[in-house]
Design a protein around this nucleic acid. Structure first.
Length: 88
DNA sequence: GTTGAGCGTT
């Protein structure tokens, strides 16, 4: 109910990958409600993973299927539904 | 180089 968007985890990102990069990559498969690369709270560096929220479950699944294992910045992405945490 | 914060203690 409170979880209207499909929450997607994107791992194995190059440290150079930005939230904008995620938004562009997932935006090719549907509407992206939010895209965020997670940075280390202490060092400020990318932690090498991020999250993307998409309102359409069908588009979200298609994006996951298309981007999981895809190459971005020289890294093979790991993409799947996120485990916990909700939007904020 | 892999699953988000921070109040506080789950």
């Amino acid at each position: 109910m409170a979880m209207a968007n499909t929450n997607i985890y994107v791992g194995n990102l190059a440290y150079s990958t930005t939230s904008r990069d995620l938004e562009e990559a997932f935006g090719r498969y549907g509407t992206v409600a939010r895209a965020q690369v997670v940075s280390d709270r202490d060092t400020g560096r990318s932690r090498g993973f991020g999250f993307v929220e998409m309102p359409d479950a069908g588009e979200a699944q298609r994006a996951i299927d298309a981007l999981d294992g895809a190459d971005l910045g020289g890294r093979k992405l790991t993409v799947n539904k996120a485990r916990e945490r909700e939007s904020r």
